[in-house]
Computed example of a mutant assay.
Amino acid sequence: MAIGGQSSNGSEEDGVRAGRVWVRQLAILSLVTAFAVMGLKFLAWWLTGSVALLSDALESIVNVVAACAALMAISIAHKPADEGHPFGHHKAEYFSAVLEGVLIVLAALLIISEAVPALFEPRPLDNSSAGIAINLLATIINAVLAITLLREGKRYRSPALQADGRHIMTDVWTSVGVVVALILSGLTGWLWLDPVIAILVAINILYHGARVVMSSLDRLMDRAVDPEEQALIERSIREEAEGAIEVHDIRTRIAGPARFIEFHLVVDRNMSVAAAHDICDRIETGIRRKVEGARVTIHVEPDQKSEPHGLPLA
């Protein structure tokens, strides 16, 4: 016997819709900014001829593609559940996040492919002051955007926004490394610093790209909620389960902003269906108050179904 549902009020639904609109607007802002930053970085490379600046500009092409993918994934993820996808389309964002990670790795490989030849044939830099100024402007724009995407992506549990934010933050560190390379090359005359720093930045980007890919793949494998959220769910059940005997087999999985929660609730075998349903409603409401995006399914069982590993409630 399974009891559970998705009761909600109008204000909650309005808040969810407003959050979705804001997440999509941020994805659009990320795409527009990616185009603007790409233009600035290619201008900086054209003025200086720096291989580090060229590697930075090449990574910006990847940023544009990634921003397009993030916007598309967010648009799909926000579609309501339908007959073919009764649990919704939340996981679309994870596919975007995996692509972001792959593109980060690709950007690092592009940087290395440009830097290694320049390591053996260093080139003098022109108009380095202008290149530094333009690159710093692009870096500041990217840093503000990355911090915003990471903060809001975490707030609204958007894997695509968070991956995009991490991607852009790697671009920020790339740009910082490029500026350091240009300044040191200008002060010391050591032209080999330009490609060396570009390669070091690429190695750092490879590491972050691999982390994004592994994390996103893990979420696609129906990863459970973290221990803190699990403890919050168990506490909510205990607080609202008056009249029940035990809960066991609590299972959870994450899908974008949604948290799917399922467990078995043991009650007295003589309890009426209506009384058991009232307990389930209280528990579900309590969980939804504490865990945003919770989708709760409760399997009600008679007391002879108690399990040794169950959590006593009485």
Rank of each mutant, 00 (worst) to 15 (best):
R211Q: 14
V144K: 00
F120A: 03
V37M: 03
S96W: 00
V300K: 00
V65A: 09
G49R: 00
A57G: 07
S96C: 01
R289H: 14
D56K: 00
D218K: 13
F120G: 04
P159G: 02
V201S: 05
D218I: 03
A70C: 14
L109S: 02
P227I: 05
V64H: 04
I250F: 07
V51A: 11
L40N: 00
I237T: 09
L110V: 01
A67N: 09
S185Y: 02
A27R: 03
K41C: 04
T148H: 02
A258K: 14
N127A: 12
I199G: 10
M1W: 14
I134H: 02
P302H: 09
V64W: 06
V37C: 03
N204D: 11
P117K: 06
P312C: 14
P124A: 11
R289F: 04
I283G: 03
G4W: 03
G10W: 07
W22R: 15
A2N: 14
N127F: 08
A138G: 11
L232C: 13
R123H: 06
V21W: 13
R253D: 12
V37R: 00
A244G: 02
K79N: 13
L206Q: 07
F42V: 01
H90Y: 15
R259L: 07
P257Y: 12
G15F: 05
V273S: 12
P86S: 02
N204I: 05
W22V: 11
V32C: 13
A73F: 08
A66D: 01
A294C: 04
I3R: 12
L161V: 03
A231T: 10
V291G: 00
A81V: 09
R219D: 13
H167F: 11
V116C: 02
A34Y: 03
V179Y: 07
R20P: 01
E307A: 15
R157D: 15
A163G: 12
D249C: 13
K290E: 04
G84Q: 08
S11N: 04
E59N: 12
K305G: 09
E83Q: 11
N127V: 07
L43H: 10
N63F: 04
V225D: 08
A258H: 14
A66Y: 00
I168W: 09
L311F: 14
K79C: 08
A52D: 00
D56P: 01
P159H: 03
V32A: 15
P227A: 11
I205K: 07
E59Y: 04
L150K: 12
Y94S: 05
L29V: 09
D82S: 10
V247K: 06
K305L: 12
G177K: 07
S75T: 15
H78F: 12
R157F: 12
V267C: 10
T170M: 10
P117S: 02
D226K: 10
I134F: 01
I287T: 05
A18G: 15
I147H: 07
I261T: 09
C68Y: 08
I261E: 07
L110D: 09
D14L: 15
I203F: 07
G286N: 10
V273E: 08
R235G: 15
E12C: 00
L125D: 01
N135V: 02
W173R: 06
E83G: 13
T139E: 03
I233V: 15
S216C: 04
V62P: 04
I61Y: 00
G209S: 03
V172L: 04
I203G: 03
T297V: 14
V176Q: 12
